[in-house]
Amino acid sequence: MTATATARIRRSPVRFDATALERTSRDGWDIVRRYSDEGGGPWLVDLSHRCRWDLQHPDVGNQRPFGVPVPSKPGEVAISDGFAVNRMNRTQASLWHLGGNDRPATPSGVGFTETTDGHCMLAFLGPETASVFEHLSDLDVFDPERGLPRLVQGPVLHVPCQVVALGSNAVILTLSRGYGRTFAEAALQFARPCGLRPAGEARFDEWFVRWASTRSSDPSLPSR
């Protein structure tokens, strides 16, 4: 078997109808870093190549995947060192690698399942993100009584999703891979009145670094 035949080729389910200005290849994924004419926001960013896992454990609240403690209550989100740990229910948490371009190894242990290739991951960023989301779902992901960041599980465009609102200008969601392409097309169409446009991964990286530094310098936020 040739080297070409054994090389991994991994494709995002999402295709944006936009011209890529800058591309990179990482771990078999062809990733667009920037699109032409991204505009001033809001943006839709395809993050399907970012690593994700599910953790299932009867005592999930006392686990520390990647050194991050799993939150004690369903709906809570812990973010540290570029990882988001979302408590889903009594026994499960989802783990998202949001920061950095490296590929973390799957933690040892029987409870971890890598879900990167089975899901699609999208980020809504920038001004008017809340208005964009109101065009797509009845879910109140910015409920001030619950605080942010927060995990909400429910339908967006009638597709079951895990939705994490990081702030009033950033929402990240995952959904089954098969819905990815049409979901992105529908989201762009429904939120066109808000000016939603596709953007490359660099837009998310820049936002996340800025957001994480703001968080770490705010003493009112929990350290984890």
Binding site: P74, M88, N89, R90, Q153, G154, P155, P160
Partner: peptide, 8 residues
């Protein structure tokens, strides 16, 4: 069964 949400 919360099929479109948390699956519980």
């Amino acid at each position: 069964y919360h099929g479109q949400g948390c699956g519980v």
